[in-house]
Design a protein around this nucleic acid. Sequence first.
DNA 1: CCCTAATATACCAACTCGGTTATATGCCTT
DNA 2: AAGGCATATAACCGAGTTGGTATATTAGGG
Lengths: 107, 107
Amino acid sequence: MSLPFTALADPTRRRILDLLRRRPHLVGEVAGELGLSQPAASKHLRVLREAGLVRVRREAQRRWYGIDPAPLAELDAWLSPYRRMWQESLDALERHLDEGRGTEEEP
Amino acid sequence: MSLPFTALADPTRRRILDLLRRRPHLVGEVAGELGLSQPAASKHLRVLREAGLVRVRREAQRRWYGIDPAPLAELDAWLSPYRRMWQESLDALERHLDEGRGTEEEP
DNA sequence: CCCTAATATACCAACTCGGTTATATGCCTT
DNA sequence: AAGGCATATAACCGAGTTGGTATATTAGGG
């Protein structure tokens, strides 16, 4: 359950995910678009794959990498108890703005 | 914007957040409840604070650490374009189950 | 069958991390 | 003023990452 978190810790890997979100990519395409060496791209994709965030489809010697969003759903679930908290904060802010409405308009 | 991700990468820090979610804690309490040395707790709390995930209230020589959920809201926002994707997956699963309904009940 | 293309792995340097022990800082109590 | 508490910081260490270059691996095309 911890692998997705560590996979997402690296900004390059998040950029890779943002790429794959649009469409599946070959390893070389990822490397090219992000200015990485081919081995670097390959290694990041390996980490993402081991975290379950990415799936591979082989096509001859090419590998199409695409997103598997399932672990992100877990992350979303982890987030949910906290979601209450920032919603409360937003509510409080809203109340604050409502209370203050009309009082700050002197020049 | 990257700090929250790296802060959440460590499981101990996620456990700390889960602790603080219930109520604010002193450094010593965090160390005690998680079986950490005091400096270890202190350092993790520093990382969380620098990521904006945690706020401190000083009270004499004690420090009450509590959660600031704002960066988690950012994380939630980052997640949102992906949320579409797993919802599609779930929808597909649902359709699949609906299609299959009633066909798997032979012994 | 070689040759090339696409990807993976090995290996190395620089750096970061999580933890420990030792020490500093700040504040309260007596 | 001195001692004790709670916390922070420093110095250090082993382990793990990230990125690069060089080398294997595997599949297809001539």
